[in-house]
Every structure is written in C-alpha cells, then in structure tokens.
Amino acid sequence: MTSVTTALILAGSRPGGDPLAQAVGVRHKALIEIGGTSMLAYVVAALRSAGMTRILVSTGDEAVSAAAVALGAEPVAAEAGPSGSAAAALALAGAPLLLTTADHPLLRPEWISDFLQAVPAEADVAVLLARQEAIERDAPPSRRTYLSFADGRWSGCNLFLLVTPAASRALDLWSHVERDRKRPWRIVRRLGLGMIWRYLTGRLTLAAAVARIGEGVGIKARIVAAGNGLAAVDVDSPGDLELVRGLLT
C-alpha cells in the first residue's frame, strides 16, 4: 500500500477533566509519567521509529501542546469529540493518516509496521483489533472490554488507518455514534435488521460486521488482527497504569 508517514495522536480532554489524571495529580492524562517519561512521549517515539515523519497531536491543553512541540510533534486544536478531531486532521494532512491515542504507552514500532503491511489494498479504512486469546497469552491479567462475534471475542487496539479521502465517511458515522451513545436504538437502527439478526443468532463475524458497516456509508472497511495481545492494553484506570508501569519499568 501507499507509504504512510503522517500520524495523529488523539489527546483531547474529557469535560470536567480525566479522573485518572486527577488521581495521579497531573493536569492531563497524556502527561502522566512512567519511569520519568510521559505517556505522550512514549507514543511519539513509537510512531517516529515506525517511520512517521509528521506527527500531529490533537489537544486543547496548553501543557500538552508545549510537550508536543518539545517532542518535535505538531499540536493541532482538538475538535468536539475524537471523530471531529480526526476529521480536522484528515482535512489538514490528507490521507493516508494513521490514528492512535496518547494513552497507549506500550505502543511499539513493529506493531505499527505490521499493521500497515497487513492492511488490505482495497481498504478505505482499517482498524487493528486483538483476539481475547492473544491478549490472555501476551498480557498479564487485565480487565479489557470485548466485542463477542461468531469468530471470537475482540478488543480494540487504538490504532486506525484512514487510507483514502473516502475514510471521512467513516468519521462522519463515528460522529453520529458519539452523539447517539445515550440513544442506542439509533445506533442499532443504522446496522440494519439483517445484521442484527445474524449477530443475535451467533452467525456474524467481526470482519463481516465491519465490512457491512463500511458498505452502509459507501466505503471499504477492514480489520487487521494484532499479532501481540499487548497492543490492546491502554491506560484508562489506576489498574491499567500500575500494569503498564510494571511492564515498562
């Protein structure tokens, strides 16, 4: 596929502040340090080692912006929600654009490279996910959120590739999901009764579900299975932070 050299790190702020950042005593979760290095710095280093020459950091926090500049990254204003920030970055930098998050300090260059090499040539957008078996094999005991399908249980890895400009349609769908998160019937309605029935009867694979959702907005959406289950471990809770600190230090 086309060489990917631009990445976006999502480092927005939750309304009212992030509970984990507040518990640790820092102003933003991206600035939490592990072994004397911020989570943001770990992510920037992994992206740079994987060949990213332009790294955008989407944030509304001045301290995170300053940290990004110090790391040689480019701060850009965060929009309303992750989908809005991703759409703004895609409009600014164009496709292909790699997306990840600032709370993923375990991110490794080889995971990024393997993901990019495995993205199907026809894809407009691709997402990295890990099977439960891989997570249980590679990661110490940790609580993860799983999606159950006919081909197993999967967890997200906070790594996405917007391959073509058409990927903006996926971001538009993402924005609708964000708006409708408290009205799940609207999200269900978008999936269609046929796919819902296949899911309820245990006949829907994750790859088929993602592909069908993509078709609904006129794009080709594909999944890539992570080779290392640690790719699904980000830092959302004190337990996650303790686990990742142990692994990195």
Rank of each mutant, 00 (worst) to 15 (best):
G51F: 04
A121H: 06
R27S: 14
R108H: 11
V188S: 13
A170N: 14
D240V: 04
P105D: 07
I219Y: 02
M1F: 11
V188D: 08
T205W: 01
R144T: 10
L191G: 05
P96R: 02
L20Q: 08
R203Q: 07
E62T: 14
V24I: 10
A91C: 10
S237G: 05
V224I: 11
A231W: 00
D124K: 03
G94D: 01
L71R: 14
G246S: 05
G227S: 15
R137F: 00
E215N: 11
S148I: 12
A221M: 03
A226R: 01
G25W: 03
R181W: 05
M52Q: 14
S58I: 07
I187Y: 00
T101D: 14
E62H: 14
G12Y: 04
W197R: 12
L116H: 04
V163Q: 03
A88H: 01
R153N: 08
L191W: 02
A30L: 05
V76R: 06
T6Y: 00
A211W: 05
A21E: 06
V69Q: 15
G214A: 04
F160D: 12
A89T: 08
V244R: 03
N228A: 08
A45S: 13
A73K: 02
G214S: 01
G36Y: 04
S65W: 07
R137C: 09
G216T: 07
Q117P: 14
W174K: 01
N158M: 13
R153I: 03
V76H: 02
G84M: 02
G16R: 06
W174M: 04
A11E: 07
A78R: 02
E136W: 02
P105Q: 11
S175D: 12
I223Y: 00
A91V: 06
P184Q: 06
A70K: 15
L193P: 09
Y146A: 11
G81L: 01
P184I: 06
T2K: 14
A211M: 10
A66R: 11
E215C: 03
W185G: 11
A45T: 15
L241S: 04
G84Q: 04
K29I: 11
H104N: 13
S155K: 01
G227T: 08
D180M: 06
A170M: 10
S65G: 15
T205K: 01
R27K: 14
A68Y: 04
I55W: 02
R222G: 08
E215H: 07
S13E: 15
I223F: 00
T59E: 10
R245W: 09
R190L: 13
E215V: 06
H176S: 13
S83A: 12
W185I: 14
L90K: 00
P15Q: 07
V44I: 07
P75M: 08
L10M: 10
A70P: 12
S65F: 11
A45H: 09
L241I: 07
A77I: 15
A166E: 08
E122W: 05
F115T: 07
G156F: 01
M39F: 06
A7N: 07
A134C: 09
W197G: 15
A118N: 13
R14C: 12
S49M: 11
A211Q: 07
A123K: 00
L107M: 08
E33I: 13
H28D: 12
T249D: 12
G94I: 00
A73R: 02
A77C: 15
A208H: 02
A66H: 10
A232R: 00
G16A: 04
A118L: 08
S113D: 14
L191R: 01
R245A: 14
V69H: 12
Q22V: 12
R222S: 06
